[in-house]
Protein backbone atom coordinates (compact mmCIF):
# COMPACT_ATOMS: atom_id res chain seq x y z
CA UNK A 1 0.00 0.00 0.00
CA UNK A 2 2.94 2.30 0.57
CA UNK A 3 4.75 3.74 -2.42
CA UNK A 4 8.46 3.28 -2.65
CA UNK A 5 10.45 5.85 -0.76
CA UNK A 6 7.44 7.30 1.02
CA UNK A 7 7.94 7.29 4.77
CA UNK A 8 5.33 5.34 6.69
CA UNK A 9 4.13 8.35 8.65
CA UNK A 10 2.31 9.98 5.72
CA UNK A 11 -1.11 8.51 6.42
CA UNK A 12 -4.21 8.62 4.24
CA UNK A 13 -6.03 10.47 7.03
CA UNK A 14 -3.32 13.10 7.20
CA UNK A 15 -3.49 13.71 3.45
CA UNK A 16 -7.27 13.84 3.59
CA UNK A 17 -7.02 16.50 6.30
CA UNK A 18 -4.81 18.67 4.06
CA UNK A 19 -6.82 17.98 0.93
CA UNK A 20 -10.22 18.49 2.56
CA UNK A 21 -9.13 21.83 4.05
CA UNK A 22 -8.26 23.01 0.55
CA UNK A 23 -11.33 21.48 -1.12
CA UNK A 24 -13.88 22.88 1.32
CA UNK A 25 -12.16 26.29 1.33
CA UNK A 26 -12.31 26.28 -2.48
CA UNK A 27 -16.02 25.43 -2.42
CA UNK A 28 -16.76 28.30 -0.03
CA UNK A 29 -14.71 30.79 -2.05
CA UNK A 30 -16.46 29.62 -5.20
CA UNK A 31 -19.75 30.78 -3.69
CA UNK A 32 -18.45 34.35 -3.99
CA UNK A 33 -18.14 34.24 -7.77
CA UNK A 34 -20.21 37.09 -9.29
CA UNK A 35 -21.18 38.20 -5.74
CA UNK A 36 -17.97 39.93 -4.57
CA UNK A 37 -18.01 43.64 -3.69
CA UNK A 38 -15.98 44.60 -6.75
CA UNK A 39 -15.16 43.06 -10.11
CA UNK A 40 -11.44 42.85 -9.34
CA UNK A 41 -12.15 41.21 -5.99
CA UNK A 42 -14.38 38.71 -7.74
CA UNK A 43 -11.45 37.69 -9.92
CA UNK A 44 -9.10 37.53 -6.93
CA UNK A 45 -11.41 35.30 -4.88
CA UNK A 46 -11.96 33.00 -7.86
CA UNK A 47 -8.19 32.84 -8.33
CA UNK A 48 -7.66 31.83 -4.73
CA UNK A 49 -10.45 29.26 -4.97
CA UNK A 50 -8.76 27.76 -8.03
CA UNK A 51 -5.41 27.59 -6.22
CA UNK A 52 -7.00 25.78 -3.30
CA UNK A 53 -8.85 23.42 -5.62
CA UNK A 54 -5.61 22.65 -7.45
CA UNK A 55 -3.88 21.74 -4.17
CA UNK A 56 -6.91 19.68 -3.12
CA UNK A 57 -6.78 17.66 -6.34
CA UNK A 58 -3.09 16.80 -5.90
CA UNK A 59 -3.52 15.90 -2.23
CA UNK A 60 -6.66 13.83 -2.71
CA UNK A 61 -5.18 11.99 -5.70
CA UNK A 62 -2.17 11.11 -3.57
CA UNK A 63 -4.42 10.06 -0.67
CA UNK A 64 -6.38 7.80 -3.02
CA UNK A 65 -3.21 6.16 -4.35
CA UNK A 66 -1.81 5.69 -0.85
CA UNK A 67 -5.08 4.16 0.29
CA UNK A 68 -4.86 1.70 -2.58
CA UNK A 69 -8.51 0.71 -2.90
CA UNK A 70 -9.16 2.48 -6.19
CA UNK A 71 -10.66 5.77 -5.03
CA UNK A 72 -9.55 8.68 -7.17
CA UNK A 73 -9.88 12.41 -6.43
CA UNK A 74 -13.47 12.44 -7.67
CA UNK A 75 -14.50 9.46 -5.57
CA UNK A 76 -12.95 11.07 -2.51
CA UNK A 77 -14.52 14.48 -3.16
CA UNK A 78 -17.98 13.42 -4.25
CA UNK A 79 -18.70 10.12 -2.53
CA UNK A 80 -17.71 10.70 1.08
CA UNK A 81 -20.20 11.85 3.70
CA UNK A 82 -19.50 14.63 6.19
CA UNK A 83 -18.42 12.02 8.76
CA UNK A 84 -15.68 10.94 6.37
CA UNK A 85 -14.40 14.45 5.72
CA UNK A 86 -11.26 15.42 7.64
CA UNK A 87 -11.20 19.21 7.12
CA UNK A 88 -10.86 21.65 9.99
CA UNK A 89 -14.07 23.35 11.13
CA UNK A 90 -12.80 26.80 10.13
CA UNK A 91 -13.08 26.24 6.38
CA UNK A 92 -16.63 24.87 6.43
CA UNK A 93 -18.15 27.87 8.21
CA UNK A 94 -20.46 30.00 6.05
CA UNK A 95 -18.96 32.91 4.13
CA UNK A 96 -20.89 35.54 6.07
CA UNK A 97 -20.03 39.07 4.97
CA UNK A 98 -16.82 40.05 3.20
CA UNK A 99 -15.04 40.68 6.52
CA UNK A 100 -15.89 37.16 7.71
CA UNK A 101 -14.54 35.67 4.50
CA UNK A 102 -11.32 37.70 4.75
CA UNK A 103 -10.81 36.69 8.40
CA UNK A 104 -11.28 33.04 7.45
CA UNK A 105 -8.82 33.38 4.59
CA UNK A 106 -6.34 35.19 6.82
CA UNK A 107 -6.39 32.45 9.45
CA UNK A 108 -6.35 29.63 6.91
CA UNK A 109 -3.46 31.01 4.88
CA UNK A 110 -1.50 32.06 7.99
CA UNK A 111 -1.71 28.38 9.01
CA UNK A 112 -1.15 26.87 5.56
CA UNK A 113 1.95 28.95 4.80
CA UNK A 114 4.19 27.58 7.61
CA UNK A 115 2.56 24.17 7.16
CA UNK A 116 3.38 23.90 3.45
CA UNK A 117 6.79 25.46 4.01
CA UNK A 118 7.63 22.76 6.57
CA UNK A 119 6.12 20.02 4.41
CA UNK A 120 8.10 21.12 1.36
CA UNK A 121 11.19 19.92 3.21
CA UNK A 122 9.73 16.63 4.49
CA UNK A 123 11.06 13.20 3.60
CA UNK A 124 8.03 12.23 1.52
CA UNK A 125 9.13 13.57 -1.86
CA UNK A 126 5.69 13.64 -3.44
CA UNK A 127 4.12 15.46 -0.51
CA UNK A 128 7.10 17.83 -0.46
CA UNK A 129 6.60 18.62 -4.15
CA UNK A 130 2.88 19.32 -3.68
CA UNK A 131 3.60 21.52 -0.67
CA UNK A 132 6.36 23.37 -2.52
CA UNK A 133 3.91 24.30 -5.27
CA UNK A 134 1.08 25.21 -2.89
CA UNK A 135 3.35 27.28 -0.64
CA UNK A 136 3.85 29.99 -3.26
CA UNK A 137 0.13 30.25 -3.87
CA UNK A 138 -0.70 30.43 -0.18
CA UNK A 139 1.81 33.24 0.34
CA UNK A 140 -0.28 35.22 -2.12
CA UNK A 141 -3.52 34.32 -0.30
CA UNK A 142 -2.05 35.51 2.99
CA UNK A 143 -0.92 38.74 1.40
CA UNK A 144 -4.37 39.33 -0.07
CA UNK A 145 -6.28 38.54 3.13
CA UNK A 146 -3.84 40.64 5.17
CA UNK A 147 -4.31 43.67 2.92
CA UNK A 148 -8.08 43.48 3.23
CA UNK A 149 -8.02 42.88 6.97
CA UNK A 150 -6.00 46.05 7.37
CA UNK A 151 -8.21 48.02 5.00
CA UNK A 152 -11.41 46.96 6.70
CA UNK A 153 -10.08 47.11 10.26
CA UNK A 154 -8.55 50.53 9.66
CA UNK A 155 -11.32 51.70 7.34
CA UNK A 156 -14.67 53.15 8.32
CA UNK A 157 -16.37 52.72 11.68
CA UNK A 158 -18.71 50.16 10.15
CA UNK A 159 -15.97 48.15 8.42
CA UNK A 160 -13.94 48.15 11.65
CA UNK A 161 -16.93 46.83 13.58
CA UNK A 162 -17.50 44.05 11.08
CA UNK A 163 -13.85 43.05 10.79
CA UNK A 164 -13.49 42.96 14.55
CA UNK A 165 -16.64 40.84 14.92
CA UNK A 166 -15.35 38.41 12.28
CA UNK A 167 -11.94 38.02 13.92
CA UNK A 168 -13.52 37.46 17.33
CA UNK A 169 -16.05 34.97 16.06
CA UNK A 170 -13.51 32.89 14.14
CA UNK A 171 -10.60 32.99 16.58
CA UNK A 172 -11.79 29.98 18.63
CA UNK A 173 -11.73 27.85 15.46
CA UNK A 174 -7.99 28.38 15.02
CA UNK A 175 -7.23 26.26 18.10
CA UNK A 176 -8.11 23.08 16.24
CA UNK A 177 -5.43 23.75 13.64
CA UNK A 178 -2.63 23.26 16.16
CA UNK A 179 -3.74 20.17 18.07
CA UNK A 180 -0.60 18.08 18.52
CA UNK A 181 -0.14 15.06 16.26
CA UNK A 182 3.41 13.77 16.79
CA UNK A 183 2.93 11.03 14.19
CA UNK A 184 2.25 13.51 11.36
CA UNK A 185 4.99 14.47 8.87
CA UNK A 186 4.80 17.96 10.40
CA UNK A 187 3.41 18.22 13.92
CA UNK A 188 0.75 20.98 13.81
CA UNK A 189 1.60 21.97 17.39
CA UNK A 190 4.89 23.42 16.16
CA UNK A 191 3.18 25.74 13.67
CA UNK A 192 1.33 27.99 16.06
CA UNK A 193 4.21 30.39 16.66
CA UNK A 194 4.56 30.97 12.92
CA UNK A 195 0.79 31.37 12.61
CA UNK A 196 0.77 34.05 15.31
CA UNK A 197 3.74 35.76 13.70
CA UNK A 198 1.71 35.98 10.48
CA UNK A 199 -1.55 37.11 12.09
CA UNK A 200 -0.68 39.37 15.00
CA UNK A 201 1.12 42.13 13.04
CA UNK A 202 -1.82 42.24 10.59
CA UNK A 203 -4.33 42.62 13.42
CA UNK A 204 -2.20 45.29 15.03
CA UNK A 205 -1.90 47.30 11.82
CA UNK A 206 -5.64 46.87 11.34
CA UNK A 207 -6.21 48.35 14.83
CA UNK A 208 -7.96 45.15 15.87
CA UNK A 209 -7.43 43.58 19.29
CA UNK A 210 -6.01 40.06 19.21
CA UNK A 211 -8.73 37.87 20.78
CA UNK A 212 -7.85 35.98 23.93
CA UNK A 213 -7.25 32.26 23.70
CA UNK A 214 -9.79 30.04 25.37
CA UNK A 215 -11.91 27.06 24.63
CA UNK A 216 -12.23 26.23 20.97
CA UNK A 217 -14.31 23.63 19.16
CA UNK A 218 -12.50 20.64 17.63
CA UNK A 219 -13.55 17.47 15.86
CA UNK A 220 -13.08 18.22 12.16
CA UNK A 221 -10.07 15.93 11.80
CA UNK A 222 -12.11 13.11 13.33
CA UNK A 223 -15.12 13.68 11.07
CA UNK A 224 -17.17 15.51 13.71
CA UNK A 225 -18.27 18.67 11.94
CA UNK A 226 -20.49 21.70 12.45
CA UNK A 227 -23.99 21.63 11.03
CA UNK A 228 -22.74 23.51 7.98
CA UNK A 229 -20.68 20.83 6.25
CA UNK A 230 -23.43 18.41 5.28
CA UNK A 231 -25.34 21.19 3.47
CA UNK A 232 -22.17 22.23 1.67
CA UNK A 233 -21.56 18.62 0.60
CA UNK A 234 -25.18 18.14 -0.47
CA UNK A 235 -24.79 20.99 -2.95
CA UNK A 236 -21.32 19.96 -4.06
CA UNK A 237 -22.13 16.28 -4.54
CA UNK A 238 -25.70 16.33 -5.83
CA UNK A 239 -24.90 15.76 -9.50
CA UNK A 240 -22.34 13.05 -8.90
CA UNK A 241 -24.71 11.18 -6.61
CA UNK A 242 -27.61 11.51 -9.07
CA UNK A 243 -25.51 10.05 -11.89
CA UNK A 244 -22.95 7.78 -10.25
CA UNK A 245 -20.18 6.59 -12.52
CA UNK A 246 -20.87 9.20 -15.21
CA UNK A 247 -17.89 10.76 -17.00
CA UNK A 248 -17.49 14.49 -17.66
Amino acid sequence: MNTTGAPVHTTVDYLLGLGDDALVAAQRLGEWVTAAPELEEDVALANIALDQLGAARLLLSYAGELEGVGRDEDALAFLRTDREYRNCLLVELPNGDFAMTMAKLLFLSAYQLPLYTALSGCADERLAAIAGKARKEVAYHLDHAGLWTVRLGDGTEESHRRMRAAVEELWPYTGELFVADPAAPVDPAGLRAAFLANVEPVLETATLPRPADGWGPTGGRAGLHTEHLSYLLAEMQVLHRAHPGARW
Binding site: E38, L39, E40, V43, A44, N47, Y140, D143, H144, L147, R151
Partner: peptide
Protein backbone atom coordinates in the same frame (compact mmCIF):
# COMPACT_ATOMS: atom_id res chain seq x y z
CA UNK B 1 -6.62 49.26 -17.13
CA UNK B 2 -8.50 48.37 -13.96
CA UNK B 3 -10.19 49.92 -10.94
CA UNK B 4 -8.61 49.63 -7.50
CA UNK B 5 -8.77 51.62 -4.25
CA UNK B 6 -5.01 52.12 -4.07
CA UNK B 7 -1.70 51.23 -5.72
CA UNK B 8 -1.07 48.09 -3.68
CA UNK B 9 -4.37 46.52 -4.63
CA UNK B 10 -4.04 47.76 -8.19
CA UNK B 11 -0.77 45.84 -8.39
CA UNK B 12 -2.31 42.68 -7.02
CA UNK B 13 -5.34 42.93 -9.25
CA UNK B 14 -3.09 43.49 -12.24
CA UNK B 15 -1.15 40.38 -11.32
CA UNK B 16 -4.36 38.33 -11.36
CA UNK B 17 -5.92 39.92 -14.40
CA UNK B 18 -3.00 40.43 -16.74
CA UNK B 19 -0.13 38.12 -15.78
CA UNK B 20 -1.76 35.06 -14.22
CA UNK B 21 0.98 35.40 -11.59
Amino acid sequence: SLHAPDAELALRNARDLYTRR
